[in-house]
Nucleic acid binder design. Sequence first.
DNA 1: TTTAGTGTCATAATACACTATGACACTATG
DNA 2: CATAGTGTCATAGTGTATTATGACACTAAA
Lengths: 125, 125
Amino acid sequence: MDFNDTKNIFLQIRDWVADQILQGKIIAGEKIPSVRELAVDMEVNRNTVMRSYALMEEEGIIENKRGIGFFVAADAKVNLLKMQKRSFLKDELPAILHKVEVLKLNSEDLQILIQTIQSNDHENQ
Amino acid sequence: MDFNDTKNIFLQIRDWVADQILQGKIIAGEKIPSVRELAVDMEVNRNTVMRSYALMEEEGIIENKRGIGFFVAADAKVNLLKMQKRSFLKDELPAILHKVEVLKLNSEDLQILIQTIQSNDHENQ
DNA sequence: TTTAGTGTCATAATACACTATGACACTATG
DNA sequence: CATAGTGTCATAGTGTATTATGACACTAAA
């Protein structure tokens, strides 16, 4: 995995797992990669993955069955959606707005973004 | 100043100064706060501010007059606009797009963002 | 029972951001 | 000249992320 220098690795691992769940690539009740396995895959130390998993367990996203491994919590996806949506609108959006204003980005610059938003409008579920 | 735990302080200071320039609060040729002064203002060590200024000097945003202080470079604002716009579209926008898709954010959620973009469309300069 | 796979804990070492502090050269101003 | 304000460098200490490694308890399966 290609990590970003500006963000802690254990947070990026948590973000990656959360993204897998949000995308439905790992579903509720399913086992996630073991600490050792993911550490090897991502070329990272066991302890670093362990820290990510411990954090996610605190957040109620995953659960541990001792001797077996970690599993996606029953309502992980719904909670993740709620948490991340709230966090995005409250913390990230203001910074984005500020940049859009200062850099004077217009519909042409952000064409893809507007299209993506509009395609979300046409979804019924 | 209120710093974000997830990003290095010396980078946040650079971002803050760059933002002041982009907003026109500090213009070309103007002196920026001295290393010691800004360090006291932001309750940070001299060396940390020094690191931010050294970075900005490398980037050609500010220039040093020895014994006097740092000054905004002549074409700092234009270059900052170019650099940050490129960086935003290349690095930040893809991540934003991904979140908008996964969280299924629609025009209602991002109403303010769309308004801001549209108001930039109506600017002629 | 033995084996392999889980998480977990403890320890030590490395790297780096940040702090604290002192000293020095330079410039403007009295 | 002396003084105060600039940046700059060196040194040492602190905190923390990350690595490296070993050991242990638990579980499933041969």
